[in-house]
Amino acid sequence: MNHLCRLTLAALIPAAALSFGLSGALAQTPSPAPAASVSPSPTSPAPSASPSPAASASPVPAATPSPAASASPAATPAPAASASPSPAPPAAAATTPAPVQTADPFGLETMLEAKKVVMVKGTANWDSAFDTLVDAFKALNALLDKQGIKHAGNSMIVYTSTDDTGFTFLAEIPVEQDPKNLSKDMSIGKSPEGKALKFVHRGSYDNMDNTYEAITNHLDDKKLEAKDTFIEEYLTDPLKTAEDKLVINVFVPLK
């Protein structure tokens, strides 16, 4: 399926120009009721009758605590307790700025800068496409490792043509110094440059069909005019990364 979308994309680009609390306080008031003052009654049982008027006096003071209930306005601080919830909202507000994870950009306009690269030219059929690309990268890495030359950027594949059976490509690795003893299929040159749209693919090479289909639809919807090539930049090393864990930038150069 990969080749169908790449073919559609490749055909779309040149041909169609990529058209794309108070009650509790009252309960305590009985406790002040000088019923405890009745305790004098046991001390003098004879004047038990006299205590009754005294008791009548005691109820009067007992009634006086009831005005203390009039202190219920003091209970108005209860609204002050209601003020305690007010600090709660700021705490909630502090939790609101939760980090949000954004998706990969799709169709982001960018400028490609030309880099010095060592490259190898190759052809592949769709059935063994990824294996062929990996072999090309292996050949380039063997050359650089032998000469102690480090990569100066991510490995790339530049598709130069596609058809029903396969495609031609350039496998490129950016370098800062020129390697020697190149094979006949290898050369030193520059990577593509200029304005391009950037798309991101995550997953296996075989599942890139969905990505290329989405790219084709995006170009068609935006009615964009693109060049007749596209580039894959491997953010993960295809020689060391499981195929289903690949992360690849796809660039479509614009005219």
Rank of each mutant, 00 (worst) to 15 (best):
A98F: 07
A91Y: 06
P34Y: 10
P89D: 04
H201R: 05
T29R: 13
I231W: 02
G189A: 08
K240Q: 15
G107F: 01
T160D: 04
G21A: 13
L140E: 05
E225W: 04
M208H: 05
K146I: 00
E172A: 15
I248W: 01
A10G: 06
P89T: 04
A46Q: 14
I188S: 02
H151I: 00
P34N: 10
D163N: 15
P34Q: 13
T102F: 11
N154C: 05
A98G: 09
V175D: 00
L140N: 09
P53W: 08
Q101V: 15
A10D: 09
S44W: 09
T168I: 05
A142C: 02
L18E: 11
I188P: 00
D135C: 01
N210Q: 15
V252K: 03
P61G: 12
T8R: 14
S183G: 15
F251Q: 02
T132K: 13
G153H: 06
M111W: 07
S48E: 10
A142R: 12
T96P: 12
A57W: 13
H201E: 01
L143V: 06
S66I: 10
A16M: 08
P73F: 12
S161G: 04
T162I: 03
K198L: 10
E176P: 02
T229Y: 14
T162E: 04
A15F: 09
D220V: 14
A46N: 10
K240R: 13
R202W: 02
E213Y: 12
A54Y: 08
G107S: 03
A62F: 06
Q28S: 15
N154M: 05
A136R: 04
D220E: 10
A68E: 10
P42R: 10
P238W: 01
K121Q: 13
D135T: 07
A49G: 09
G194Y: 05
V117M: 03
T211C: 07
A16V: 08
A63I: 07
T165A: 14
Q28D: 12
P59R: 14
A242I: 02
N217T: 14
P77H: 08
P73Y: 11
K146Q: 15
L12Q: 09
G189H: 06
P85D: 00
L143M: 05
K138A: 05
L182V: 00
D185A: 15
H151V: 03
A142H: 07
R6G: 08
S58G: 13
A57H: 12
A68Q: 11
K116H: 08
A196Q: 03
A114V: 03
A94W: 03
S82W: 07
F20Y: 10
M186V: 01
N249M: 01
L239G: 09
S204N: 05
A33T: 14
L22Y: 11
A10I: 06
